[in-house]
Amino acid sequence: MTNINRKRALLCSVMMMGCTNLDGNDVATLDGPYLGQTPPGMVPKAFAPGLVNTENWGDSIGFSADMNTIFVHRWRHTHEVKDPESEIYKKVDNRWRKSVLPAGTRKPQYSPDGNVMYFGAQYQERTADGWSELKSLGPKFDEIRIMGLKSSAKGTLVLDENARHNGGHGILRYSRLIDGTYEDPKPLPKTINTGMWNAHPFIAPDESYIMWDGIRESGYGEADLYISFRLSDGSWGDAINLGEQVNTDAEEGGPSVTPDGKYLFFNRMVLRKDGSGQRQSDIYWVDAQIIENLRPK
Rank of each mutant, 00 (worst) to 15 (best):
G170H: 07
K262S: 05
A204P: 13
M147T: 12
D184W: 09
E222C: 02
Y226D: 03
K190R: 12
G58I: 12
E143F: 07
D26R: 15
R164V: 00
G234Y: 15
G237P: 08
T69E: 12
N198Y: 06
K98V: 00
H169L: 11
R8Y: 01
N162T: 01
E133V: 00
Q122G: 05
S256P: 03
E161V: 02
E183K: 15
L172E: 07
E217S: 12
D66F: 09
D142F: 03
Q109T: 09
L172C: 06
Y209C: 14
P33A: 15
M117E: 05
L35M: 03
P296G: 01
L149N: 01
G180N: 12
E133P: 00
V81T: 04
T78Q: 03
N56T: 13
E251N: 14
K90D: 02
Q278E: 08
W236D: 02
K82R: 13
E143Q: 13
G221R: 12
V52D: 04
N3D: 12
Q124C: 10
Y174C: 07
Q122E: 09
Y226F: 07
G221I: 10
G253L: 09
L188E: 14
D160G: 11
D287H: 11
T20V: 02
N56G: 03
G168L: 09
N198T: 03
N68Y: 10
G275W: 06
S235I: 04
R74Q: 03
K82S: 00
S281N: 09
A239C: 05
P139K: 02
M67R: 12
V158I: 11
E207N: 09
I70A: 03
D249P: 05
G58K: 14
M15L: 10
W96Y: 12
D260G: 13
Y182N: 12
N94I: 00
